[in-house]
Every structure is written in C-alpha cells, then in structure tokens.
C-alpha cells in the first residue's frame, strides 16, 4: 500500500527528492526567467504609475510566499506533533528562513514601489505593519531553533511556538487593522493606489496578469526547491550526527 506517510522515512524522502529536486529547480528557473523578462520588457507601462508598476512581478509573488511559508510551517509542525515524523519537523525548520527572506523581499520591494507612489518609503499601513510583525515572528522562530541543542526538544518547542505564534499573528493582524483605522483614517485614500494581492489584480488587465501568474508559479517552484534542498541538508546533518554517535558507542 502506497501511503504519503511512507515518504516521512528520511531514506525514502531522500531517494524521492533526489529525482524531484532537479525538475522543480529547473521549472522554477524557466518560469522566473520567462515571467520576469515578459513582465519587465514585454508589457506596456501603466498609464498612471508608469514603469514603477513592474515591481509587482517581484512584490506580489514574494508576499504570497511569505504568508504561505508560515502555513507550510504550521502544517508541518502539526504533523510532527501528531505523527512524530522527523522529516516533517525538518521541513518546518527549512521553510522558516526562506519565508523570512521572502517577507523581507516583499517589504523592501514594497518600500521601493511606495516611494514614488506615496512619496514616502514607509507608511504604517495595516498591511505593511502586519508583514513587519510576520518578519519578527520568523526571526523568533529561527532563533529558537538555533538556540536548542537537542534536535527533538527543539522540534517540539518550535512546533508549540509556531502554533501559538499563528494564533497571535492572526490576532495581531486584526489588532493592527483596528489600530490604524483608529489612528489615521486617511490611509485608505493612500491605499487606493493599491499595495498588494487582490487589490492590484482586480485593477490590472490581462496584459499584466498573465506574466504575473507565470512569476507566481516561478516563485512557488523556487520556494519548493529551496525547502527541499534545505530539508535534504538537514537530513544529511542528522545522518552525520547519528553516524558519529553510533561510532562512539560501538
């Protein structure tokens, strides 16, 4: 009986990803090169935003991955908690730095986009603020992994942190919306220029949308490739540790 849990065995996981990884990596490269060239050079300038709008091809996919990487960590942590598969815990560990970097890319490209649009690098817009908080959550999570020596204890504790953190991240998102609306009502006018995701896509016509989807696909594949690669590295690290431990005992 083939079950998905079979691949929770590190050896089987390594064998499978050995074949899958090159395909995913190649797909990521093709999609990203195609999407970015198409987006940057083969689409017309926006009549209002000019060529600045083209940063959307980096900004939106990065922002999407930034949030979804956390979901990946959440699911992987739950699987580790319930089924105690080591690979699952390592996937959560591997996804965190990738998610953190994507959050940073989204923040930086957002600032670069925001400067000509709003005349300032940073506004305490609820969305921007939420991303900043998300980045802090990533930092804390990564730091906790690094600080604990015993790998199983680290996996347990970071899984709990990920679960509790998810609840607080949602709470923060809600609180930040509440807080900004209380602070300056004018923010919504600024936001009419659209910051990310759904707002933008509604406004963009098909000429922009198709390369955007290609870019998103590229980023998803890139994320997948990076996480697989990092998970493989972590598995090798644990394997080395286990071999050394055995040598010492025998």
């Amino acid at each position: 009986m083939a079950s998905i849990w079979e691949y929770a065995n590190p050896v089987k996981f390594m064998r499978l990803t050995d074949r899958v990884l090159p395909v995913v990596a190649l797909g990521a490269a093709v999609c990203m090169v195609a999407g970015l060239i198409w987006g940057f050079f083969l689409t017309p300038d926006d009549f209002r935003q000019g060529s600045t709008v083209k940063i959307i091809y980096l900004h939106v996919p990065a922002a999407l991955i930034a949030i979804n990487a956390w979901f990946v960590m959440l699911v992987a942590s739950l699987v580790w908690f319930i089924r105690r598969h080591h690979v699952s815990a390592l996937v959560a560990k591997a996804a965190a730095p990738v998610g953190a970097v994507m959050t940073l890319i989204a923040l930086i490209t957002g600032a670069i986009w925001g400067e000509p649009m709003w005349g300032t690098w940073w506004v305490w817009d609820p969305r921007l603020t939420s991303f900043l908080i998300l980045f802090l959550f990533y930092l804390g999570y990564i730091a906790l992994w690094e600080a604990i020596e015993s790998p199983d204890t680290a996996a347990d504790l970071t899984a709990v942190l990920c679960l509790v953190g998810s609840v607080f991240a949602v709470l923060s998102r809600y609180a930040v919306n509440f807080w900004n609306q209380g602070l300056h009502q004018g923010a919504s006018v600024l936001r009419a220029g659209a910051v990310t995701g759904s707002d933008t896509e509604e406004k963009v016509s098909n000429v922009f949308a198709v390369p955007l989807f290609v870019c998103i696909a590229g980023f998803v594949l890139l994320f997948l490739a990076l996480v697989l690669l990092r998970t493989r590295t972590e598995i090798r690290k644990r394997r080395t540790a286990a071999l050394i431990a055995r040598e010492r005992l025998v």
């Binding site: 590190p10 050896v11 080591h86 540790a241 286990a242 431990a245 025998v250």
Partner: peptide, 12 residues
C-alpha cells in the same frame, strides 16, 4: 546502540 530504541536518530 544499533537497536531501534537507541537514544539517537536511527531513523536517519
């Protein structure tokens, strides 16, 4: 140390 209930990562 080579048994399955050893204290280290036999699974790996």
């Amino acid at each position: 140390p080579t048994s399955s209930i050893g204290g280290f990562d036999e699974e790996f």
